[in-house]
């Protein structure tokens, strides 16, 4: 499946990209929100893995942008956060159309198991 990861932690995106590629998926990485949105203008992904806490342009900003240009329904977005459960931000992005918020650190195999549900049936 085709996955986009937007996270400012380069070690993490490197690891995920290697993991997803080695498990037979296609993975594109972006290390900030604006370039992630740019990639989304020209490519389509089955799932977007988005870090909520990024400097300057946060994951929530990305979600808002996608909602404002009406693209949120076309994308399966799974957000990652290192914060504790039941924070307001989580409820806000879910309300805006994000499919799920998962907590970091998350094992790559657990994440892959979870996003399998969004794999396009061909």
């Amino acid at each position: 499946m085709k996955i986009l990861i937007i996270d400012d932690n380069k070690d993490l995106t490197k690891m995920f990209k290697q993991y997803f590629t080695k498990t037979g998926n296609t993975c594109v990485v972006s290390n900030d929100g604006p370039s992630g949105l740019l990639i989304l203008q020209s490519q389509k992904f089955e799932v977007i893995i988005l870090d909520l806490a990024m400097p300057d342009f946060s994951g929530k900003d990305v979600v808002e942008e996608l909602r404002n240009n009406g693209k949120i329904k076309d994308n399966n977005i799974v957000c990652l956060t290192a914060s504790s459960p039941s924070n307001e931000e989580e409820e806000e992005v879910i309300a805006m159309g994000v499919k799920k918020v998962l907590r970091k650190p998350i094992d790559p195999d657990v994440l892959l198991d979870f996003i399998k549900q969004f794999e396009a049936k061909s």
Binding site: F16, P105, I106
Partner: peptide
């Protein structure tokens, strides 16, 4: 920092 450490261990 824990996420990539655990991730690479898994791999």
């Amino acid at each position: 920092p824990l996420a990539p450490i655990i991730g690479y261990c898994k791999m």
